[in-house]
Every structure is written in C-alpha cells, then in structure tokens.
Design a protein around this nucleic acid. Sequence first.
DNA 1: GGGCGCTGTCACAAAACTGTAGCCCGACTG
DNA 2: CAGTCGGGCTACAGTTTTGTGACAGCGCCC
Lengths: 229, 229
Amino acid sequence: MKPQVLVVEDEDALATLLQYNLEKEGYTVAVAADGEDALMQAEETTPDLVLVDWMLPKVSGIEVCRRLRGRQETANVPIIMLTARGEETDRVRGLDTGADDYVVKPFSMTELFARIRAVLRRIRPGLAEDVIEAGDITMDRVAHRVRRADREIHLGPTEFRLLDYLMQHPGRVFSREQLLDAVWGSDVYVEARTVDVHVGRLRKALNNKDERDPIRTVRSAGYAFDVNA
Amino acid sequence: MKPQVLVVEDEDALATLLQYNLEKEGYTVAVAADGEDALMQAEETTPDLVLVDWMLPKVSGIEVCRRLRGRQETANVPIIMLTARGEETDRVRGLDTGADDYVVKPFSMTELFARIRAVLRRIRPGLAEDVIEAGDITMDRVAHRVRRADREIHLGPTEFRLLDYLMQHPGRVFSREQLLDAVWGSDVYVEARTVDVHVGRLRKALNNKDERDPIRTVRSAGYAFDVNA
DNA sequence: GGGCGCTGTCACAAAACTGTAGCCCGACTG
DNA sequence: CAGTCGGGCTACAGTTTTGTGACAGCGCCC
C-alpha cells in the first residue's frame, strides 16, 4: 500500500503544495493545521510518516514530536521536521526529541522525497521494501505480484492495495472506515459495506480450499491480517 | 564491479534524475555540482566514466574536460558531454577537448545508457553488458538485433528501446509515464496511451501464436516484462 | 514524385473491475 | 426462543481500463 503521510503545517499554501506533490508521488496524505489536530489524526490513522513544521501555532513542532513518541501507537512512527533557515541551531534539539531527519526550508520536492524515502527505508524497511512475506503468502510490490504457496494469485487493483495495507500492519484490526481512508483514499465516498465485498473477493482469490484464511473478521470492529498459522 | 560514474551537473532536477536512473541501471554514482567539485571528486574516486554538462557555473564543461585530461590519474577516463540543442556546432570543439561522445538534450535514458555502454565498451571493454537474454528471447544491443527461439524479430526503433528497457528490469512494473520518460525522453509530450499501442506492436512482433506473451499488463498500473515461462 | 517504414492519435469494442442492493444465516440480546 | 444485528455472498448494471485496426503525417531512399 501507499505509505500514509501526515503533514502538520499551518501555512496553507505550503500544506497544499506538499499534499499535492506527495500525492502525485504516490503517498496518501492527511493534513493537520496544528498540533492538537495532528495528535488526533495520528491516533486515528497511524501514519507511516509524519512531516512536522517546526513553527506551529499553539503546540510547537518539538512538542508534537515528543507527544507522538509518548504514545504507544505512534511511538515508532518516523518524523521529519521542516525548519526554516536559521533554526538550524536547534537541530540537535529536534533530533533529540525524536525527529528522524529534518529538512531546511526552502527545499525542493525531490530533496524532500529523497529524505522521505531514506527515512522510510531506514526506519521501516517494510515500506521501502519491495517484498513482504507472511506465512506462505508473498507480495511483491515492484513486480506487482502476489503468490501463495508457489501459485500466482491474481488480484484486481483494489484487492491488491487492500492486501498490501493489511499485510503492512499485520495483526492489527482496522475498521471499515479506516480501510476506506487508507485503501480507497480519504476523500471518496463509498459505502462501508463495500469493504466487506472486497474482503470477500480477496479471500476467494487467496484461499485455496483447506488453506487457512489469513484475514480475520472482528465482529463489529473490522478486519485484520493474521500472520501465523 | 559496478562501473563508477561521476555526474557533473549544476541543475538539481536533472542531476537527481540522472543519479536515480544510473543507479537503477547498476552504476555507482557520484554527483558534482560544479567544476571545482568535479575535479576534486574525480581525483578522489577515479571514476570509470564522467558525464559533464556543457553549461556549468564557474568552470565550463570544456574546461573540466581539459583539466581532467591534464591530470595523470584521470587522463584516460572516458567523458560524455551533455549539450543543449543549438550547442551542437560546438561539437567539434567538445570532442577536440577530449570528450569521447556527446548527447544532445533532451535525451531519453535508454539513449544515454546506450552511449554510455558504447563508450565504456570502446575504452574499457568488459565493463559494458551487450547482450541480454531472458527465456528464449535474446537482445543484442550492439548488433541491434532481437531473436526469439532462433528466429529473427524485426522491431522499429521505439519498440527496440521499449523492449530494451523492460528487459533491463525484468519483473518490474512501469507506469506508462515512467516508460515515456525512460524510452521516449523525459520531456517529450506524448499521449500516455501511445505506450499501449507500442506495447501492442511489440507483442505482435514478439509472439508467435502459442508462444507465451512475456509482457504482462498490470491493470491500472502499467506493464512489466516477465522472465519466466 | 512515389513508395515505404515508422509514429502518434483516435475511436470503438472487449475485458476487467467496482459499488450497491438484497438475501441468508449465524451470533448475540434480553 | 423470538428478534436484532453484523457479515458472507451473489447478481448485476455501471465504469474504467486496455486492445486494436484505421489513418494521417513524416522523413528517407530510389
């Protein structure tokens, strides 16, 4: 699945620009205008990466960092700081607080993208990794192929992304809404039950008879991908 | 060992693009933003090949050439010039000064790679790969021939480069845009669907009936060349 | 000038995929 | 145990994406 990026930026123009470019680059993007908002959204969506502006109204970027680190679910999410020139001296403090990298404004998109890729690769090999394996299921995102026990599994685009996302966070339960946001995109309106249908299709494609179903239904909560047998 | 390439280019976007593609192609890449930098790096690493932009701030590409030639360690390193259209008249001057070849912008990546291989082959035989094989398909880039199962396959220039690029990265899926960038050139404007047409033509030329189609369509993603049977 | 090979676009047909509704059934509630 | 609720499944009509034949333009060689 596309990595999910949370952009925390109060300046509207920059936020829009970032969102636009990140999405073009293939990331799923959520934007928060201030620290409060950021923490809320981070808790909901558990992004794969957070971009935080150093200067924010109310809660500062550093503080956002610290708090993200303090929470169970977001403790390991990589963070990249956006700092203006002249704030460089604070760099150490920023990295100390838990940012994984920082970019000095003004920066080019390609530069930013390079940092992002580098950080993702470093912190979450799974995201920059081309191949994810779980049990007898292998998913190759570069080749765009899925196989189970040496047989090729054909999936439609949506099923592919769905499986990708689930495998990316094994064991974790996602509500239908969360899956819609992550897999379909945060701004499309689709019926929640549609997720069921796709999960069904995914299951049918994935499971030969007498094979264990790796997708677990959690009643009145959602679905999860379970690794083990 | 991977050949080491030194890219001397002040324009950030192009430098990044070159680095990215060269590395993907299997070269080790160093980038220098200006002539001074280039000379320093060249001395340190003694690259196998240098790509120099004609237009550079401070020290011009030609000057870099001359100086590289003037030094003991780098006197025999092959050099390829990147020139913009209109600077062609300077060609002779460029070659005189010691460049081994030149490429006119805009160029496609496959074109550039072909030049690089040609120069490396000439100057340092053994560093360039000339023939790619995959299953019963053989592509000879020097002779510019493709054969499948002992029969000669005739391809137009574009189909040839397309197949070349795909075979170069077997299994990997490329979007139509990526293919346009790599095969057509990074700044030509061509309809994305044109790729489909050429893939179609390539398929028709490549596949006798009852032969497996090595080109896989990945719906809503692009195309890939699959090695295996 | 007239073929000829190659290209890029279009338009249309075919194929693949999608979202929704509806029905059924087992699980849970009281 | 009857009544709900949530989820699995199927059918289907609507969309999106891809395959392809036709065509006009271009550069080249004879």
